[in-house]
């Protein structure tokens, strides 16, 4: 898959996963790699970038079970950004779906 495209989709995934609750890095990696095949290490650069851009703040939490966790929390600008991204994605995916529908229909006919 195109690298830039994949990056864009991963950005959307990471942000949307943190919409309801804060999550830690390993949790995010797991959630995403359950859905598709990625080099898991690439999620961390993405998280750093989003933090630098001000969409996340982070905090470290010791856990009762297992190693300490670095949590990612959406900021206000992160919440606005994810809304924009979701709208863009919906526009994009309906467009693609329509083309797929048209394409497969004309193939049969």
């Amino acid at each position: 898959m195109n690298v830039q495209f994949k990056k864009g989709v991963l950005t959307l995934c990471v942000l949307v996963l943190t919409l309801k609750k804060d999550r830690y890095g390993y949790e995010l990696v797991n959630k995403i790699s359950e859905q598709f095949l990625i080099a898991e290490g690439t999620i961390y650069p993405l998280l750093r970038r989003l933090t630098k851009d001000g969409y996340f703040t982070t905090y470290l939490l010791e856990s009762q079970e297992g190693p300490p966790r670095k949590y990612y929390q959406l900021t206000e600008s992160g919440k606005t950004y994810i809304e924009v991204l979701i709208k863009e994605w919906e526009l994009f995916s309906t467009g693609v779906n329509r083309l797929i529908e048209e394409g497969t229909k004309s193939d049969e006919g």
């Binding site: 890095g25 390993y26 080099a39 290490g41 190693p67 966790r69």
Partner: peptide, 25 residues
């Protein structure tokens, strides 16, 4: 960040080689 990833994965009982393979080069 990567160190933390390793710790979590090992805590889950994953093998070192398995973790390395899924992380990427």
């Amino acid at each position: 960040d990567y160190e933390e990833h390793f710790q979590h994965a090992q805590f889950e009982g994953k093998e070192e080689q398995e973790i390395l393979a899924s992380l990427g080069s």
